[in-house]
Amino acid sequence: MEPAGIVLISHSAKVAEGIKEIIHQVAKDVPIELAGGTNDGRIGTSVEKIQTAIERAHTDSGVLLIYDLGSAMMNAEVAVEMSEFDDIEIANAPLLEGAYVAAVESGMGKSLAQVKLAAERALHED
């Protein structure tokens, strides 16, 4: 099985790019795709960008979406509903810490469910 892919959804393209840079230090083999900003480069999120990122990041282990603020979650949900894949999960996790932990777990070959859980527990002490 390939490692599960990860899509970073942010209101800002720069935020998404920066987080990918940080993650790249620890997880070089995990597909990380970005959906940052709107189609015309403003602050916001785009269903089309999320859909494209899902297509690119998807592997036979599925793909995990992580988002930053409220409307990003709504657009993530729309993209999932419109996608033909049924192995997409949305993590309710802090974007940076969640994606970082998720990438590490995915790189170790964990299942999509385990990767999602790890992301959602990123700020837990235990």
Partner: peptide
């Protein structure tokens, strides 16, 4: 509306 509105209004009015 879903694809062209960047904020929360896109997914909401789109839906």
């Amino acid at each position: 509306l879903m694809s062209k509105v960047g904020g929360a209004a896109g997914p909401l009015y789109g839906t």
